[in-house]
């Protein structure tokens, strides 16, 4: 029997595994994708420093190799069953059944499907992208930045809170990272296309982390990005492929129309479908927002209602990379405490 089975090979899972190994515990990671790193694989740069995401990914890849962590790729967790003796039986898409003394749910998040906001025209109008699409585009960029219809953009708009704080989407919560991501991406595009006018349409700007507010100020003062407090009501396509946005400017108290070459939808974070499925299998309590409910928000955010079953990273809600790393380290210490207490 292994000490800890970790569900998810993103940065939360790997950081937890590394920290647990440092504490002397044997771990395995079960990852549904063909590679480790989760969403970081698709990201170009990270806020607030514009550091390349691949650097962080390379760090974790090196750690994985150096420590010879055991990782099962392309493996889905089907169910997690707690046994009478307090250990866990984990059934996966492989024939083998894993047994462990503790389990960590580090299954991450999924991005909001922007097609659900039908009025924004994602997957219908060619020049409507999501923030994730833009990261991929920037990551693969060779030469000049152009819109999907091959034009150097003169006007670009970012729409915040797509699928977040949105009752119609069933997501009342704030995804918390989209604001700063929009600021980061807006600056990046302004650097690539200095002549472009860039608009950010927001509800509130939630610059909660160190360096975020400074970046927001820089976006306005240095890069002249225009922030409009208001929601997008609908998008239409002009005959030349440009887009017409109908936006409410709540500070000016008037509706406005904006013509842009490209629209970026800042998609929020949702609980991964797989998390919900195996949470049901082991009686794991989920919060109304469908993420896993921590046992105690303040002093036990790594613990769950099932003893021996822990969480790390965004399985409990939206988190940045550095929040995820810190949470994962704390999970390792919570597991150590659990083993010490159960051994007594």
């Amino acid at each position: 029997m292994i000490d800890v089975l970790i569900i998810g090979g993103g940065i939360a899972g790997i950081e937890t595994a590394c920290s647990l190994q440092d504490l002397g515990y044997e771990t395995i990671i079960v990852e549904k994708e063909k590679t480790i790193g989760g969403h970081l694989n698709d990201w170009d740069t990270l806020f607030p420093t514009h550091r390349s995401a691949s650097e962080v990914l390379a760090h974790y890849t090196d750690e994985t190799r150096k420590r010879a962590l055991t990782i099962y790729l392309n493996t889905y967790v089907i169910s997690v069953k707690k046994q009478d003796d307090g250990t866990f039986e984990v059934h996966t898409s492989r024939d083998v059944v894993f047994r462990s003394k503790a389990v960590v749910v580090a299954s991450g998040y999924k991005l909001f499907n922007a097609e659900r906001k039908e009025e924004y025209g994602y997957k219908i109008y060619d020049n409507v992208l999501t923030s994730a699409d833009l990261e991929v585009k920037l990551k693969d960029l060779k030469g000049e930045f152009k819109t999907p219809t091959d034009k150097v953009p003169e006007r670009i708009a970012f729409i915040h809170c797509v699928g977040s704080r949105d009752e119609k989407s069933g997501n009342h919560y704030c995804s918390k990272l989209c604001c700063v991501t929009a600021v980061k991406q807006a600056i990046h595009l302004k650097q690539l296309c200095p002549k472009a006018e860039i608009f950010c349409c927001y509800m509130d700007l939630r610059m909660y982390g160190p360096g975020f507010e400074e970046m927001y100020r820089e976006a306005q003062e240095k890069y002249h990005i225009q922030f409009i407090r208001g929601r997008l009501s609908e998008v239409g396509e002009n005959s030349n492929g440009t887009l017409q946005l109908k936006v409410e400017d709540t500070l000016a108290a008037r509706p406005c129309k904006i013509q842009v070459d490209m629209l970026v939808l800042m998609v929020g974070m949702e609980s991964a479908k797989s998390t919900e499925l195996f949470a049901q299998s082991c009686g794991l309590k989920c919060a109304p927002n469908r993420f896993i409910q921590p046992l105690d928000h303040h002093i036990g955010s790594n613990l769950t209602n099932v003893e021996g079953l822990f969480t790390a990273g965004t399985s409990i809600g939206p988190m940045s990379v550095f929040d995820t790393v810190n949470h994962a380290k704390a999970t390792a210490f919570a597991i150590r405490d659990y083993f010490i207490n159960t051994a007594r």
Binding site: E115, E118, G121, Y122, K123, I124, Y125, D126, E237
Partner: peptide, 10 residues
């Protein structure tokens, strides 16, 4: 304009 996107909605 991507007609396939519209068909999905339909």
């Amino acid at each position: 304009m991507n007609i396939e996107g519209k068909k999905q909605i339909w």
